[in-house]
């Protein structure tokens, strides 16, 4: 297997693990962790798209590195995606705090107000 193939498979597995725990867990904190794992998988997938064989980081130095540079665009996208993921996680955790205060539990099965 080539390097990108290994990375694609890992990204795929990370996404599946994240989505599985999002679907099966009842603890809301764990659901959010599952979301973060899936997020990680997507970020890995994006970075892998820019991969080039024997590529170096896209930074110009005084001593020119041999070989091609990897694609800078997916790396920039991942930076954005990480920040967005952080923002969503912070908001989600605050909501869980509020739910814990109002319901005294972070188990979705114990929160009966709405159907999950």
């Amino acid at each position: 297997m080539t390097v990108p193939q290994i990375l694609y498979v890992s990204a795929f597995l990370l996404i599946l693990i994240g989505l599985y725990s999002l679907l099966t867990q009842r603890n809301m904190i764990r659901m959010i962790i599952g979301l973060n794992i899936a997020d990680l998988g997507v970020n890995l997938f994006l970075v892998t798209i820019g991969f080039v064989d024997n590529g170096s980081a896209p930074i110009f130095r005084a001593q020119a590195a041999a070989g091609p540079m990897v694609d800078p665009v997916p790396q920039a996208l991942v930076l954005t995606s990480i920040v967005i993921g952080f923002g969503v996680t912070a908001l989600a955790l605050t909501l869980v705090m509020r739910l814990f205060v109002t319901h005294g539990s972070i188990d979705t099965a114990r929160i009966r107000g709405l159907k999950w």
Partner: peptide, 28 residues
């Protein structure tokens, strides 16, 4: 068939124009 030795995306254009256009050594 996932193996390539050079970029075929807009990234290669950016790598070529970035030193003149932005003046930043770090292309990202």
């Amino acid at each position: 068939a996932e193996s390539r030795s050079e970029l075929d995306s807009v990234g290669s254009e950016i790598l070529a124009t970035s030193p003149d256009l932005s003046g930043a050594a770090n292309t990202v």
